[in-house]
Design a protein around this nucleic acid. Structure first.
Lengths: 182, 182
DNA sequence: TTAAAGTTTCAGTAATTTCTGAAACTTTGG
DNA sequence: CCAAAGTTTCAGAAATTACTGAAACTTTAA
């Protein structure tokens, strides 16, 4: 393999744990992403020098993240693996999957906790803070659920706009107000 | 400590590694967040039953994340620790810090790699994919840098709007076009 | 029904990460 | 300058997480 490509795959491995999986799975993900043709489990095992069993676990995990999909080639009973979509799709999947693992459990714990009545000042403060966290996570969750509905092009526009979107929001308010004034 | 509060702190511990730190640091973070008054390292050590040395490491890490700040109480030379701001501020810090650790290294590797010329079809495909990833990460980075400039209230508006922001963007285009038409 | 091709599971081992606690270090009031 | 109060460091131990490889399982073509 070209050394630059290999460097990329190894980098994915190193970043793996920061992205929510582990080294091997990071490498597998990188490899599948930049491979022109779908790969078999054995090819992955050979390319990365990891045991067949480990590849099997990794595939299961990547499927749980909905990042890869199985393909069959007519006349061949092996399973071939390819990315489950374009880069934007995959990014949204990672984002969503991470939200499920990193935000949802906390949200449900907080919902539960916030039913409690405070018994003293310290508790009251703690509950207020939790309420703040709860509201923030709720907002993020709601927004994250809406995101994929916009489609890549519009998302791109929005992100490239950056803080400028603030002005657009102002404009909208202005427009609406002038509308109601009349 | 109230059992609900304790449950929250322990939960933060369990989530710790998913949020980018480890159990202890997660607990410390949760504890400091819901404590009405700033805490000393010893109080943290006692409350969470972890060694003084570990608390010291944790404090350093939480400071690196810019999530806590030191406070001094007149006539007392101990250091007291408190959250470094309101919940939105902290969330933005986590977001930014994670971007630095999870996105930036990849972006710089990709920039480097993309200077290469493809030697064959497979390499060409790989480089195209990397270009896609690069562009996406670049967009996200740019957007992330803009985010904090908006301020919590506007961010809230934006997020609550969800996919609805797409319509606002359309409206803007329409407005601009009708402007240029005249 | 069988054997060949392929996949998954999991107990044991290896690698990594985290934690402790004692020693070294720093700061400050007197 | 000293001693007391407080903080940091880090080598080794403990806990956690990841990996291997062989055995068990599944699927399919003949």
């Amino acid at each position: 393999m070209n050394s630059k490509l290999e460097a990329f795959v190894m980098h994915c491995g190193e970043m793996g744990s920061r992205w929510g999986f582990n080294r091997t799975i990071g490498q597998m993900c990188g490899l599948i992403l930049i491979s022109k043709n779908p790969l078999t489990a054995n090819e992955i095992s050979d390319a990365l020098n990891i045991s067949r069993g480990n590849v099997s676990m990794g595939i299961k995990e990547l499927q749980a993240w909905r990042l890869i999909q199985v393909q069959h080639i007519p006349g061949d009973r092996k399973e071939y693996y390819a990315p489950a979509g374009d880069i934007w799709t995959l990014a949204l999947r990672v984002f969503e999957e991470r939200r499920k693992r990193e935000v949802d459990p906390t949200l449900s714990l907080l919902r539960d906790n916030l039913l409690t009545e405070p018994g003293n000042d310290a508790e009251e403060y703690a509950l207020q803070q939790m309420q703040q966290i709860h509201d923030l996570l709720e907002t993020i969750t709601h927004w994250a659920a809406e995101l994929p509905k916009m489609g890549p092009e519009k998302l791109n526009t929005l992100m490239r706009l950056g803080a400028g979107v603030g002005k657009v929001l102002d404009m909208k308010d202005k427009f609406l107000n002038s509308g109601t004034e009349k």
